[in-house]
Write a protein that binds this DNA or RNA. Structure first.
Length: 478
DNA sequence: CCCCCCCC
C-alpha cells in the first residue's frame, strides 16, 4: 500500500479532494432496514495502517457495486459521503461512516493486501471455540473449506422452518469443525462455495475461505460476515492435498454428528435477531400519476441544479464531464459523463402546495436554461440567470412516490406543458400522455440478487432473514 | 424514470 494517498483518519465530514486506498476487509449481507423498506449493506474498509471505517451502500447501489467492491481486493476511493454515525446509534462519539453511492469514485488497484488483512485479525484455534460459547464476544477463525453437505430444512424450537447447510472447515493442524450456514448464507455463500468446490478436482481444491464468527449467548456461533484470505491456504492446501483428499473420502469429520451438540445450538432467541415478516412483505412502492395546473417556483435557491449522469441510463456518475467510462448501473462500457439538469421546487395551485423535483427536460424547461450552463454556474442563481418562478399557470404531469412505511410522499414532475402551446393549436394532444390515468402500480422491491455473487438463480432469496450461521464443533478427525 | 442519502 503506497503512501501518497490519505488515510482513513485523514478524512472527516467536509474534507474535500481526498483519496484513500483501502482493502475491502469485510462484506456483510444486505439487509432490510427494520423500520423502513430500505436495503443496506455494510462493508469494512481498511487502509494501509490497518485502520478501518464502516462503509454503507443503499438500495440500488448494492447490486450496482457488487462486482466493483470485492472482498479482499484493493481500491482507491474518493468522494464517498463522509459523516459521523448517527448519535442515536453510536456508542462512542466521532465515529465516521462512509456512504458509497453513484457519485463515489472507485478504482481497482491490482495489489495483494491479504497479509495486511490477516495481520489485523487474531484467529481462535478450533479447539478453543467451546470457550467462547455464551460469551457473546466476537471471534474469528480461519480455515479452508474442504467439503459441503446438501442443504437441509430444520425446524427450530419455535416451529419456524429454516434452511441450513453444513460446511467442513479444516485448519493447518487438520482439525475440523462443522460450520452450519443458515438461511441467506445458504443462498449466497454456500452457492458460491459449491461452485468453487465443484470446479476443482479433489486434489486441487482452491476455494479457501475464512469466516468471521461471533458467539451469542445461546451457545451458537453466528457468522455475520465474510472475508477471504486466499493466499493463506493456497500453498498449504496444495502441499497437503493428499491428506485432505483422504479426509474427504473417508469423511472422518462426520464421525461426530452435529446432533450431539444441537441441543446447545439453536437459532437466535432474541426476537430482534429475527426480521418480522411485516417488514419484508408488502414492501411496495406505490406510484401514481396525475396532472396539476399551477405555478412552480424555486424556494431553496442554494441547491445543486445539475448532476453528472450517464448518457445511456441517466444515472449518477462519478466521472468528469466528457469522460468515457463503464457505467456501474447500466453496465454500458463506453458511457459518457454528461451533466443533467435537476431542480427542487414548489408547486402551488389555489388549494395548496407540494414540493417536487424535476429532472432533465422539465427542469431545463422550467429554469429556461440547460444542463451545461447550470453545471458551470458557480454563484447562487438569480432571476437574471434563470427562471425561478412562473408568472402564469402551467400544466404539470406529476408522479407521486409513496413509500409504504414513510409518512410523506415524494413528487416528481415528469412533464410541463404551457397551456398557451396547446390552446387550439397543432400541439394539442401531443403532450406526452401515454401515462394518463395509469392506475396505481405496485412494484417489487429492488435488488433481489445475491450480493456477494451474481449467480443467484433461485428467486427464493427474497425470503429473509436470520442472517446467521452456527458453527458446531466436531471431534477431531484423527 | 433520474436526483436526494437511508441502517443499526
Amino acid at each position: 500500500m503506497g503512501d501518497k494517498f490519505q488515510l482513513i483518519h485523514d478524512v472527516s465530514p467536509g474534507t474535500t479532494g481526498w483519496t484513500v486506498k483501502v482493502v475491502v476487509a469485510e462484506k456483510f449481507s444486505p439487509r432490510v432496514a427494520q423500520r423502513s423498506p430500505t436495503k443496506y449493506q455494510n462493508l469494512t474498509l481498511m487502509d494501509s495502517e490497518g485502520s478501518t471505517v464502516q462503509a454503507t451502500l443503499y438500495g440500488q447501489n448494492i447490486t450496482a457495486f457488487q462486482d466493483e467492491l470485492l472482498l479482499g481486493k484493493t481500491y482507491l476511493i474518493s468522494n464517498a459521503l463522509v459523516k459521523e454515525t448517527n448519535a442515536e446509534y453510536k456508542a462512542k462519539s466521532g465515529e465516521i461512516q462512509w456512504t458509497i453511492s453513484g457519485r463515489t469514485r472507485i478504482r481497482r488497484v491490482e495489489e495483494n493486501n491479504s497479509n495486511l488483512l490477516i495481520s489485523t485479525y487474531s484467529f481462535t484455534d478450533f479447539e478453543d471455540l467451546p470457550k467462547y460459547m455464551d460469551s457473546n464476544v466476537d471471534i474469528s477463525v480461519i480455515g479452508m473449506i474442504i467439503d459441503i453437505e446438501p442443504r437441509r430444512i430444520i425446524q427450530t424450537r419455535f416451529g419456524k422452518e429454516c434452511q441450513v447447510q453444513d460446511l467442513v472447515l479444516v485448519n493447518k493442524r487438520f482439525d475440523t469443525v462443522l460450520l452450519t450456514m443458515w438461511e441467506t448464507f445458504v443462498d449466497n455463500e454456500c452457492k458460491y462455495i459449491c461452485q468453487n468446490l465443484r470446479k476443482k478436482t479433489c486434489s486441487d481444491w482452491k476455494a479457501y475461505q475464512s469466516l468471521s464468527i461471533s458467539t451469542k449467548a445461546d451457545s451458537s456461533f453466528f457468522i455475520d460476515g465474510e472475508f477471504e484470505l486466499v493466499e493463506e491456504f493456497k500453498s498449504w492446501g496444495h502441499t497437503n492435498s493428499e491428506i485432505i483428499d483422504n479426509m474427504i473420502s473417508e469423511k472422518h469429520y462426520l464421525t461426530s454428528t452435529p446432533s450431539k451438540l444441537s441441543s446447545k445450538l439453536s437459532v437466535p432467541t432474541d426476537e430482534k435477531d429475527f426480521t418480522e415478516i411485516k417488514n419484508i412483505q408488502g414492501l411496495k412502492t406505490m406510484k401514481q400519476f396525475f396532472w396539476i395546473k399551477g405555478k412552480a417556483s424555486v424556494k431553496v435557491l442554494n441547491q445543486t441544479y445539475w448532476y453528472m449522469s450517464c448518457n445511456n441510463c441517466n444515472k449518477i456518475s462519478s466521472e468528469n464531464y466528457g469522460d468515457i467510462y463503464p457505467c456501474v448501473f447500466c453496465k454500458c462500457t463506453d458511457a459518457k459523463a454528461i451533466p443533467r439538469a435537476k431542480v427542487y421546487m414548489q408547486l402551488t395551485d389555489p388549494t395548496g402546495y407540494i414540493n417536487a423535483t424535476a429532472i432533465g427536460n422539465p427542469a431545463e424547461y422550467f429554469l429556461q436554461s440547460n444542463a451545461e450552463i447550470l453545471m458551470n454556474q458557480t454563484l447562487i442563481p438569480t432571476a437574471a440567470s434563470m427562471r425561478l418562478s412562473m408568472d402564469e399557470d402551467e400544466i404539470f404531469y406529476v408522479k407521486a412516490i409513496t413509500q409504504e412505511l414513510s409518512p410523506d410522499c415524494k413528487f416528481e414532475i415528469l412533464f410541463i406543458v404551457n397551456p398557451l402551446q396547446i390552446a387550439g393549436d397543432k400541439n394539442k394532444g401531443k403532450a406526452p400522455v401515454e401515462h394518463i390515468g395509469e392506475p396505481i402500480k405496485f412494484l417489487e422491491p429492488t435488488t433481489k440478487r445475491s450480493l456477494f455473487h451474481s449467480d443467484t438463480d433461485d428467486a427464493q432469496s427474497s425470503k429473509k432473514k436470520c442472517d446467521k450461521s452456527t458453527i458446531e464443533i466436531t471431534k477431531k478427525n484423527q
